[in-house]
């Protein structure tokens, strides 16, 4: 549905987007990750036709967004960054305007508005002016606008930004459900959303795509992917390290925590021995009491960090062990 080919956008001397290509099919939810200023919003603005690309093409449903913008835009629902809405209008008035400009009239318009009001829980604020809404309601009002015409393509720029945890959960559920029948692309800073919502994720940095794959594939790129974390009691760190260092499967090991009760260590495998590492580690520490032993799946934030800021990633990679997943 969405095809992006060698997209480039230059602002003055800065190449905000520098040769980005990807495609999104119906039934896919593509997560767009990257640090601030990486070019996420600029790419989305080019997809929706708000700004023209310096070079490259975007087609939506087969329509080039520069050559043939109107039919392309008909297929797109767009939630811009910061969810702008006309502050002087009521929610009802705003949705009515959005429906009319999408060509909906009469019964079709009423039904469409009713549907999105229910989906986005806007009933209590329908006759309130947008100006007086809380951030969450304002955000959902703009979100409602984007799905009003039941578009085949959804482009959502930080759809969960500024929502409380319950609302975030609601919106993620909504995106996942709609993803079954639409092509969705959304940007986020929240890495857990990638797991709960996306079927595929792209990491973009300084205008270039630096990673593209399913959440599992991305996680496997993490340094800790395939590593074994174990906690043993009744031994000191030095003894454990020594024992582990003798294993042929181990590249290196690191002591994460050591106290009177025991030692927690992470063991990194040599290339291509992932599967047998856990067993060989378990055999090696026989005789001591193993309290915990598991293989790390890898962590998205680690991948994100190591890709987008390579020089500091090494420090973060093994230092923090809170929240291992």
């Amino acid at each position: 549905m969405i095809k992006v080919q060698d997209l480039v956008k230059v602002f003055g001397a800065k190449r905000a987007v520098d040769g980005v290509s990807f495609s999104v099919e119906r039934g896919e939810v593509l997560g767009f990750l990257g640090p601030n200023g990486a070019g996420k919003s600029t790419t989305m603005r080019m997809i929706t036709g708000f700004i023209p690309p310096t070079a490259g093409t975007v087609t939506v449903g087969g329509f080039d967004t520069v050559e043939n913008p109107i039919p392309a835009r008909r297929l797109i629902g767009y939630l811009p960054e910061n969810a702008p809405a006309y502050t002087d209008m009521t929610v009802a008035g705003f949705l009515n305007f959005a429906a009319e400009i999408r060509g909906l009239r009469g019964d079709a318009k009423r039904k469409a508005i009713h549907r999105v009001v229910e989906m986005c829980f806007l009933e209590p604020v329908m006759h309130q002016s947008v100006e007086t809404l809380s951030k969450g309601y304002r955000h959902r009002t703009c979100f409602a606008q984007s799905i009003l015409h039941d578009p085949e393509v959804l482009v959502l720029d930080e759809p969960t930004d500024g929502l409380d945890p319950n609302q975030k959960h609601e919106v993620r559920g909504l995106i996942r459900r709609m993803g079954a029948s639409k092509a969705i692309i959304f940007s986020t800073h929240i890495l857990e959303e990638v797991d709960t919502v996306c079927s595929r994720a792209i990491i973009i940095d300084r205008g270039r795509i630096v990673a593209n794959g399913t959440p599992e594939e991305l996680r496997r790129k993490s340094e800790s992917a395939g590593a074994v974390t174990l906690r043993v009691s009744g031994v000191n760190g030095a003894a454990l390290s020594q024992r582990l260092a003798q294993l042929s499967t181990v590249k290196r090991s690191a002591i994460l925590e050591e106290d009177s009760a025991g030692v927690t260590a992470r063991v990194f495998p040599k290339p291509a021995v992932n599967a047998v590492l856990a067993r060989s580690v378990a055999e090696a520490v026989q005789g001591w009491r193993i309290e915990e032993l598991h293989t790390e799946e890898g962590r998205l934030d680690e991948v994100f960090r190591s890709i987008t800021m390579p020089e500091t990633a090494k420090m973060g990679g093994e230092g923090d062990r809170k929240n291992p997943r």
Partner: peptide, 9 residues
């Protein structure tokens, strides 16, 4: 940004 990404010229 909303207005100019609607299907209008």
């Amino acid at each position: 940004e909303l207005l100019l990404t609607m299907p209008i010229t």
